[in-house]
């Protein structure tokens, strides 16, 4: 546990050292702020004291930003060989994967925490559905966890960061859009399966204020499966082939 935390700290620090974290946070706040307050279906246009428009735009912004954060996590270490250095320290592969995962998740949590002023502002504008906000944030975090783990997996199977980025976007877009589209075009059981696989349906119900164990299990299982696959890829160097 302590070792995971040490790696988490290092990852988080390296995001801030490389300016990546600042760029990501500023861009995130810029995008979400613009679309929440100034343009499109913003709070004033909808004329409701709710953060639905913020959750909607975060849903898209994080989808693009997270692969950019995760692409270097393992690919870079593979390329420069530092992975060897890390794995010859008294840690196991799982701790390394968890540390990197938590470091990125923590950065997302920091970025989301910085949007709490939006919440406070909206409270002052009118009567707000607190339940929707209080489940919307965990919803975003759960979704981020799923995308981070997908990104981490993509990063582990290559040592080229661009490929890792594109692969993460590619896998992500399946869950983000394609399963949803397929679900709408197909009826019956298959449609049901695609609908269950699509992130958007799960995210929508959470951001409306309904936390269902079905959605929770969905996000956590994506996260777990991807983290486990990442560990397997890391351990592959030991496999007898």
């Amino acid at each position: 546990m302590k070792l995971i935390w040490i790696i988490t700290k290092r990852e988080l620090k390296s995001f801030f050292d490389s300016l990546m974290a600042y760029i990501m946070i500023i861009a995130f706040l810029g995008f979400t702020g613009f679309f929440t307050w100034l343009y499109g279906a913003d709070v004033f246009f909808v004329n409701q004291a709710s953060l639905q428009s913020f959750f909607g735009i975060s849903y898209w912004t994080l989808f693009f930003f997270i692969p950019a954060l995760t692409m270097r996590l393992i690919a870079e270490e593979n390329k420069t060989g530092t992975i060897e250095l890390l794995l010859t320290k008294p840690v196991n592969d799982w701790q390394v994967v968890m540390g990197k995962f938590l470091g990125t998740l923590l950065l997302i949590v920091i970025a989301l925490a910085l949007t709490i002023p939006y919440y406070i502002t909206v409270i002052n504008l009118g009567k707000i559905d607190h339940g929707a906000v209080w489940s919307g944030y965990p919803g975003l975090i759960l979704m981020s966890a799923a995308y981070i783990s997908i990104g981490l997996f993509a990063s582990s199977i290559t040592n080229n960061q661009i490929i890792a980025f594109l692969l993460a976007i590619f896998i992500g877009i399946m869950f983000h859009i394609i399963f949803d589209v397929l679900a709408n075009n197909m009826a019956g059981t298959i449609g049901g399966i695609f609908s269950y696989l699509s992130i958007s349906s799960h995210f929508e119900s959470i951001s409306r204020g309904v936390i269902d164990s079905k959605d929770l299990i969905y996000f956590l299982s994506i996260t777990f499966i991807c983290l486990f696959s990442t560990e397997t890829v890391l351990a592959k160097r030991n496999l007898v082939d």
């Binding site: 420069t80 060989g81 530092t82 010859t88 320290k89 008294p90």
Partner: peptide, 27 residues
Amino acid sequence: IGYLSEQNPLYLDMPVLDYLKFVAEMQ
């Protein structure tokens, strides 16, 4: 074991002291 590998890979964006602290904590 203390290990110095052939290419001597290091985290290039970390300051020396931070890096040594990281390794010390890991150990």
